[in-house]
Design a protein around this nucleic acid. Structure first.
Lengths: 328, 328
DNA sequence: CCTATCTAGGAAAAGCTATTCCTTGAATGG
DNA sequence: CCATTCAAGGAATAGCTTTTCCTAGATAGG
């Protein structure tokens, strides 16, 4: 049960194999009648060109490598889905590569992908600080999604600073003036950016932050603990650096009898559905639109593959999803 | 900057290209000195064979398709990581395919993968009921991971029934005799299996379940609600069908002043780290070893690619992770 | 010394497609 | 009527590797 090749199509249509190729690709000078005959033969035989042969000949494989450094964690998944979606629409297949932050694995993957003649690379993963740029054949375009490479390199990032800003603006808009901030480790760039956007928005409204930003961990435990400390400042709203933190905060508030949102409004970050929806009450949260980040990254990559020069950093706007923890 | 081909190696070593190939692959009859010369030339030039050409010629591409029906959700991710891990060790690359449960997308992916001459397929995804078998070229082996196909087909599944059993056995072992069960929708095969294993283990110990199994949703909200109902039965332990349900249950127990685990012990299901660890207190939970499921599926696939006949259904044992919600 | 056998390695085909260059026949223009 | 141009399609090449088959030389045996 051999697969049908263009040779079979050519024979069935009574033309040479070069002619069959031209007919199917709309190239060269052929009579319309001939084109039709070839097209019908191809249809009848169920012909599909062999991508391997095409790639070998043309140098374009219609594949890209999707490299993640953090084992497709909670954040890279949506990015990767968005990317795969945008690429799939362009009929490009995706090689999945999980480097686990191991430079050696990364090197091997890059070699493999280069050997397989991928048309481009998308690199994604957790970001603490700008990551080392992937060292690949410079002729193959690379787009970073959600991570920023050192030095040069095209990147698509969520807008953490903007996310902090819209959270603050929302809390101000619903009338809160004593707004505290509890967030993750300060060594995370994302945590610093969110805090900066948050403070900038308060400052623009002439409001002082309610106590200094509390940096800690991304965990519920830290949320519970920090909320306890924060209560001394008598906040009427708390902006949390993650939904997990927000849940911890909510636990403590409930335990001491503060009502959410009447006494203290709460806004989380990540809009992680099972966390945000399962909370009591359901959490307002900033959504970084990670799928969109992936989609945009893929589009940039497609443009680069198409020959456009790659640009610098592109930020995708975050969006606030309002639920009961901050009114609504 | 052309890539170096075997032709370059052959020229550098002063042999024909066929001879170079044999030298590099350990085939044919060659003098040891010649082999070395070729090997050194290849090394010096940094030669790596073109997988496209190899695949075109031999029909083996050293790629497999990884198809998920549920957008690489929380359950398919670990499976896919385990599979990728096992395959990567075998130097096989993975095409990522997200069908979103759309038969049309699935068909297109299968076509694409077949055209690209993948050596095999792994199908994974949410499982409510046995899924329709993927209709692919019967010459290419398929292994289902975490989903079971209708009729024939090799599958690797987590052991839901065993998971229910070990949860019950653990609760019995710590002295609980009034054990209730709150779980997800009854239409999920997994929910029914867990309940069955749970009841079987109780029965084997001569213990009556504390009230009938409560089927509902996989959500915290359902956990809160069902826990309220269940309290009338005065349970001293509750086995929950998911960690989310367990968290809801914990909320209610706390709200009515029942201590965990002193008054009521709790065991969840999934061992979903952020949920289980963030809970108050941290949850004991059944871990389905999904990475292992993926790994085993990949190994089965590799065996099938290697020519072994594919077997039937293989179950991977679940494991109980004990945390504070049930003693320890 | 001649033939059979073995060794080392070369030539060529197969796997499949896209493109460049040619060829052939017809049509057009002078 | 002859030369030129154009249309239609064929032949061949490139892209890269592996394997089969073959050849040339050497060695061994009779």
């Amino acid at each position: 049960m051999r697969r049908v090749t263009i040779k079979d199509v050519a024979a069935a249509a009574g033309v040479s194999i070069g002619t069959a190729s031209k007919a199917l690709n709309g190239q060269g000078k052929l009579r319309a009648e001939t084109r039709d005959r070839v097209a019908q033969a191809a249809e009848r035989l169920g012909f599909a060109p062999n991508p391997l042969a095409q790639a070998l000949l043309t140098g374009r494989s219609y594949t890209v490598g999707l490299i993640t450094t953090d084992s497709f964690g909670r954040f890279s998944i949506p990015v990767m889905l968005g990317a795969e979606d945008a690429l799939g629409a362009g009929l490009i297949s995706v090689f999945m590569c999980d480097t686990r932050d191991d430079p050696d694995r990364e090197r091997r993957y890059i070699e493999m992908l280069t050997a397989r003649r991928v048309d481009g690379l998308i690199v994604t993963g957790r970001r603490i600080e700008p990551r080392l740029a992937v060292r690949a054949d410079p002729s193959i375009p690379v787009v970073y999604a959600m991570t920023q490479p050192e030095g040069e390199g095209a990147a698509v990032l969520p807008d953490d600073e903007g996310g902090g800003r819209i959270a603050a603006e929302h809390l101000l808009a619903i009338g809160r003036r004593r707004v505290a901030h509890i967030t993750g480790p300060e060594r995370f760039l994302a945590a610093r950016l969110r805090a900066r956007g948050f403070q900038a928005a308060l400052g623009a409204a002439g409001v002082e932050p309610c106590g200094a930003a509390r940096f800690g961990e991304w965990s519920e435990r830290w949320g519970r603990e920090a909320a306890g400390q924060s209560l001394a400042d008598r906040p009427d709203a708390i902006f949390c650096g993650s939904d997990q933190i927000a849940r911890g905060v909510a636990d403590t508030l409930r335990a001491v009898g503060r009502r959410i949102p009447e006494d203290v409004a709460l806004v989380g970050f990540d809009n992680w559905a099972p966390m945000a929806l399962g909370a009591l009450p359901p959490l307002s949260s900033v959504d970084m639109s990670l799928e969109e980040v992936g989609r945009v990254a893929a589009e940039h990559l497609l443009a680069a593959i198409g020959g456009d020069r790659l640009g610098g950093v592109h930020k995708v706007a975050s969006q606030l999803v309002v639920r009961e923890s901050s009114g609504a």
